[in-house]
Design a protein around this nucleic acid. Structure first.
Length: 302
DNA sequence: AAGTAGTTCAACCGCCCTAAC
DNA sequence: CGTTAGGGCGGTTGAACTACT
């Protein structure tokens, strides 16, 4: 007896997301926070499976995402964390604010792997290529194992480190005499960004945007829901079409980022065109208090 | 300019884990 | 305690883009 599919795939759309779909998803999550993903497509009016919505949100639409290539810092961080954690991309990503596991995985496969090979380092073992077994054998092994679903064995090819904290793994790394000192890196990032990534939990948008979401919100009645919410003062520009608007820049300083402006800005700028419920926009604009995350965590690392 | 090969990355697939029943 | 559903994760795919011939 196999598992039932996560959703009824009949009639569901696949492939690239359109701007309209993005906007629907964004509006829904801004309004309701992240609730049951399975219900999201239905409630948001999307012909997508819930999983697809979650992926789209976490990998692309989340406002706290950095876009663009990884910096030198981040790249080095990924390399070191990979040496410690293996292909546990989500764990690696959790140490890089604004980066997704998918993004890091892709970057690893397309850039870092090559880079390491060029440097004569085996990307799997992080040891000089000459001292490791040939890669074809390893990757073959890996494929066999992963297809068999025995993930614990896959992990074995990376250094043994089941669930130890980064701190301890870092000390191991230090004792191994790695030229790269991740602790130092963390300290540096701490200084640069004003927080230590280890200490700051990644903020989920529902925590940010719907801090007072009532537990009885199952009905997803936005007008009622919004009355109960104390939404942060996002001050969405009422008219984003005026591109060189300084006020807008100030208002959007949290996400002072081209990509953000290209995606969210564009999407939100034509809210009216899609005949959105006014109740969606007004609380966001009128709510007087700016949330603490704004100052403390600030997405300004973008 | 056209064709081909290589590269990138968003999205999908299928398995695993875990909480709820 | 077994079953089920939902969410999360890592691996893979394929369309779009770029570089090269």
């Amino acid at each position: 007896m196999g598992r039932q599919p996560c959703c009824d795939k009949v009639g569901l759309k696949k492939g690239p997301w359109t701007a309209e779909e993005d906007q629907k998803l964004i509006n829904f999550i801004l309004t309701n926070g992240q609730c049951c993903w399975r219900a999201v497509p239905k409630l948001a009016g999307l012909l997508r499976c819930g999983k697809s919505c979650r992926l789209r949100w976490t990998n692309y639409l989340r406002p706290d995402l950095k876009r663009g290539l990884l910096s030198e810092y981040e790249e080095q961080m990924v390399i070191d964390l990979h040496a410690q954690l293996g292909n546990r991309w989500s764990k690696i990503a959790s140490h890089l604010p604004g980066r997704t596991d998918n993004e890091i995985k892709n970057h690893w496969n397309t850039h870092i792997k090559k880079k390491l090979k060029k440097m004569g380092i085996d990307p799997l073992t992080h040891k000089p290529l000459s001292s490791t077994t040939t890669e074809p054998q390893q990757s073959q092994q890996k494929n066999q194992v992963s297809k068999g679903g025995l993930k614990s064995q896959v992990v074995d090819e990376s250094p043994k480190e089941p669930e130890t904290s980064l701190q301890s793994t870092i000390s191991e790394e230090k004792s191994m005499g790695s030229p790269f000192d991740p602790m130092e890196m963390m300290m540096m990032m701490d200084n640069v960004d004003g927080f230590c990534t280890d200490e700051v939990p990644l903020i989920e948008p529902h925590e940010i945007l719907v801090p007072a979401a009532p537990s009885t919100s199952s009905s997803c009645d936005s007008s009622k829901l919004l009355e109960e919410l104390q939404l942060p003062d996002f001050e969405w520009p009422s008219d984003c079409n005026t591109s060189s608007d300084d006020n807008n820049n100030n208002k959007m300083s949290l996400w002072d980022d081209d990509d953000f402006n290209n995606t969210w800005g564009d999407l939100l700028s034509d809210r009216s065109e899609l005949a959105l419920d006014d109740s969606l926009s007004s609380p966001l604009i009128q709510c007087p208090t700016r949330m603490p995350f704004d100052q403390e965590y600030s997405w300004a690392y973008i």
